[in-house]
């Protein structure tokens, strides 16, 4: 018995080791791509293989990053955009879920509203931008509304579908206990749909960034979207690239935070 047990242990160790090796390999290649991308960017910009005015170069962007960090304008613009995005995507998810709850509550309302939801979902919401800006005034309200409006309808549709797919036998159990429709919603429908709501949160992070950046393109005098349009207007593409990279980093961080929350909740 003993030798074979040792053998199994050994094989298991080898397996764990091979997993580790594979992971290291993946990380190495990822790092290589990263380095290759930025060095070839730097190099081809220096050699004028690509237009240095349009594509700038990593070294110039880093220089600009430090000077913008130093004079505080980057943090100011970043915090404005971050707040707008976070508020936009939380409101979009909450209001979308609320709308989905209303649709679930009244089958009549959901039947009546069905074609309108389809139209609203199909319509490119950013086209509403000018109307929002004139209606709400140029400022936080209209930009946050852009972030909300772009994610709310798709949230409603996805969450409402999840509500309807909850196993009806759970409702049967509750109805036998004399539960009201609200209790059915609160005890079964909503908690059973939490995984879906969290995963729409993931989608909405991306959508809200789009809404907020487009909103800032249109009106604002602050924010990362403003940095992009300003850089474009004065032909300072280093500024545009800086804003783009900052957006990429923070959008990824927000996505990872939501993914982390998802793992916590789904594990339960």
């Amino acid at each position: 018995m003993k030798p074979s047990k040792n053998n199994a242990d050994l094989l298991h160790k080898q397996y764990v080791h091979s997993l580790k090796r594979e992971k290291r390999k993946v990380r190495l290649y990822q790092l290589l791509i990263f380095l290759l991308f930025f060095t070839s960017w730097e190099f081809s910009s220096k050699m004028k293989a690509i237009d240095p005015l349009l594509f700038s170069s990593p070294s110039k962007i880093i220089d600009l990053l430090f000077s913008k960090l130093h004079d505080g304008t980057l943090m100011e613009n970043l915090s404005v955009t971050l707040i707008e995005t976070i508020v936009g995507f939380i409101l979009g998810t909450l209001l979308g879920t609320l709308l989905a709850a209303i649709l679930w509550w009244s089958p009549m309302v959901s039947k009546v509203l069905d074609p309108y939801l389809v139209i609203l979902n199909a319509m490119p919401k950013v086209a509403l931008g000018p109307i929002l800006i004139v209606g709400l005034g140029p400022g936080y309200a209209s930009i946050i509304s852009m972030g909300v409006i772009i994610s709310i309808i798709i949230t409603t549709i996805v969450v409402y579908t999840a509500f309807r797919e909850v196993d009806s036998n759970f409702l049967k159990v509750l109805r036998i206990f004399g539960a009201s429709r609200f209790q059915c919603f609160w005890e079964a429908i909503l908690p059973a749909s939490f995984p879906t709501i969290i995963s729409t949160l993931k989608v909405n992070v991306g959508l809200s960034w789009v809404g907020v950046i487009v909103g800032e393109f249109l009106v604002s005098s602050k924010g990362l979207g403003y940095m992009i349009t300003y850089g474009f207007q004065v032909f300072d593409f280093t500024l545009v690239w800086l804003a783009l990279l900052v957006i990429a980093v923070f959008a990824t961080v927000m996505y990872q935070i939501v993914a982390f929350i998802e793992r916590k909740i789904v594990k339960e």
Binding site: V173, G178, P191
Partner: peptide, 28 residues
Amino acid sequence: AKIGYMLQQDYLFPWKTIEENILLGLKL
């Protein structure tokens, strides 16, 4: 609420603990 009903499967609420599950009827 004079009736008790057991289904083909247990249909315990997966996000509730056993205690919360068995007290559900009384709570409602």
